[in-house]
Design a protein around this nucleic acid. Structure first.
Length: 275
DNA sequence: CTTGTACCCTGACCGC
DNA sequence: TGCGGTCAGGGTACAA
């Protein structure tokens, strides 16, 4: 569930607590969260003793830039972080702690993941540079214009909703913000991406950036699983217009919001005004 | 190259 | 009250 605004919120929470810290030791409680091929011993050896230079983000991935490589986290559906004085996590909801990173200031970074779909990966700086190129542009980057959105998504016959969520075309958009952005731009999510007009691309560009910024200002959407650091909630769910609102009257035209399935994912839209 | 589908995982929820 | 089935979706692997 964490998409760009949620991961960026977590990054902002973690950065002041982690930047400059050294990782003294690592405990892996659930080894299947190690997404690389090598096991826990190799993982520990690669990061124990490393200093965290910076906490970054690319698409939906959280990055711990170390002095000797990059520790990458993919939260996927249910990954969460908390920071506190160990050995017990500071909040009770952490009942599925999968990894603990003990820092040199006495704090511990706890990673909790009920479903264990998320996890960690360590790459060298060079490997990360190469990996990073697989992602499309960041939609909130200062220079990201409507023409950049057109270049990113306006090709192929696949539905525009799927194009928005394709991380190699555009970075950071998932199921919630794809539906919300298309509603804001009044575009039918099933339309082939290559068929969007310049005017529709401009509306979508404006809608997408406005919604992402607005969500960021509210620390993201708290919907069942997502929490920022130490259990903190976001509030963008109060501003959702279509996501998870099947049968609710559209605020623009009163038509009931519909749910359809595209590539196995729920899409919510208004059949009345998204034409 | 593009596009689609199965899979991973567990808790919440629903109908009986 | 219990029980089985279904769903949630980010990312990857793999097939067509």
């Amino acid at each position: 569930m964490p998409e760009l605004p949620e991961v960026e919120t977590i990054r902002r929470d973690l950065a002041p607590r982690l930047e400059g810290r050294r990782i003294r030791a690592v405990h892996i409680d659930k080894p299947d969260i190690l997404l690389g091929t090598d096991g826990p011993e190799d993982f520990k050896q690669r990061i124990a003793g490393a200093r965290i230079r910076r906490v970054g983000r690319r698409a939906k991935w959280l990055l711990f830039i170390l002095d000797r490589g990059v520790l990458i986290t993919q939260l996927r559906m249910t990954g969460r972080f908390a920071v506190g004085r160990g050995p017990v996590p500071p909040i009770e909801e952490f009942r599925h702690v999968a990894a603990e990173f003990i820092l040199d200031d006495g704090n511990t970074l706890f990673y909790d993941d009920v479903r264990r779909l998320g996890g960690f990966l360590v790459l060298s700086h060079a490997e990360w540079e190469s990996e990073e190129r697989r992602f499309g542009p960041e939609p909130l980057a200062a220079g990201f214009r409507a023409r950049d959105l057109a270049a990113a998504i306006r090709r192929g016959r696949l539905p525009v909703k799927n194009a928005l969520m394709d991380q190699s075309r555009l970075a950071g958009i998932g199921n919630i913000y794809a539906s919300e952005a298309l509603y804001g731009a009044r575009i039918d999510p099933t339309r082939p991406a290559e068929g969007l007009t310049d005017e529709e691309i401009r509306r979508l560009h404006r809608s997408l950036r406005r919604i992402l910024r607005s969500s960021l200002n509210r620390s993201g959407t708290t919907f069942s699983n997502y929490r920022a650091v130490n259990g903190r909630s976001g509030s963008f769910q109060d501003l959702l217009r279509v996501y998870a609102k099947e049968d609710v009257a559209c605020r623009r035209c009163g038509t009931p919001i519909r749910r359809i399935v595209q590539s196995g994912r729920s899409t919510f839209f208004c059949p009345g005004c998204q034409g």
